[in-house]
Design a binder for these strands. Structure first.
Lengths: 134, 134
DNA sequence: ATTCACGTTTACGTTAACGTAAACGTCAAC
DNA sequence: GTTGACGTTTACGTTAACGTAAACGTGAAT
């Protein structure tokens, strides 16, 4: 199972790779975000499962809920298409895009705010160094 | 209180402006993120309070916890400075910066993923249009 | 045969971030 | 003087996202 060109993974392999617990992975399955195959009782994860997990964790880093991540993941596969559904899908994709663009703006502002904070702290540090009794 | 160049705000003014409830604003105060003045029982919010609230909500959009937002806000004012503290502050600022840069990368990937999804959905939509019985 | 390492299910516990409701004060308006 | 609109405090409820623990199965190794 510790194959280099592995095309399947155990639950603990994935847990270790992504720095999460097996409990978390099973929880995601409960919530319908993953559905690995079974060999007997044991779960076997495909590369696709791994990708889905990766997307979930990326969503987490962006503050998305599991439902939101599920939505985003499902957007990628418009298999079952009637026109109305696809129109709604395109709508939802665009909504997510707007949200991400908003986040980009927020990050820009925070980063320049942190630059300000750095400058201030450095100035204060110089002052503190001058005052040192040592 | 509905002054154009207002330098103070009521709780409901802020709630409406930012699309949150007064309950939420009081909650932030409980958590030590805001400390408005009082006129008798009533809370009065300064422009600085308003900015702090803005920063909190920006943090929320980025998936930050209230504690994280508080930290970021506090970083901006290195009033009390001994050298050691300021060094640690600079460390923490840098950590946050790394986190934000990671988020930028995550957003980039998600955006291009959404572009893919859009393309796929549009293709599927064309197919569905061809098949229409109408 | 038993000891591990790893897996399983089931279930109760926990934390954050509010929602919701009750019960009350206050001040301008009718 | 009572009715709103707006404010307050206090407190219990709720949801998401897991943590933690118990109790057990299973296959390879000693």
């Amino acid at each position: 199972m510790s194959n280099t060109t592995a095309d399947s993974y155990s639950i603990s392999e994935l847990a270790q790779e992504f720095g999460i617990t097996t409990r978390t992975i099973r929880f995601y399955e409960d919530k319908g975000l993953l559905s690995p195959e079974r060999r007997g009782q044991t779960r076997i994860y495909s590369p696709e499962d791994r990708v889905r997990l990766k997307l979930i964790l990326r969503g987490k880093r962006l503050g998305f809920s599991l439902d939101e991540s599920r939505e985003i993941i499902d957007m990628y596969d418009p298999a079952k298409g009637n026109v109305e559904q696809l129109n709604r899908l395109l709508e939802r994709i665009d909504t997510k895009r707007q949200q991400l663009l908003q986040q980009q703006r927020d990050i820009e502002k925070m980063l320049s705010q942190l630059d300000d904070a750095t400058a201030r702290a450095e100035v204060a540090r110089i002052e503190a160094l001058k005052q040192q009794t040592t």
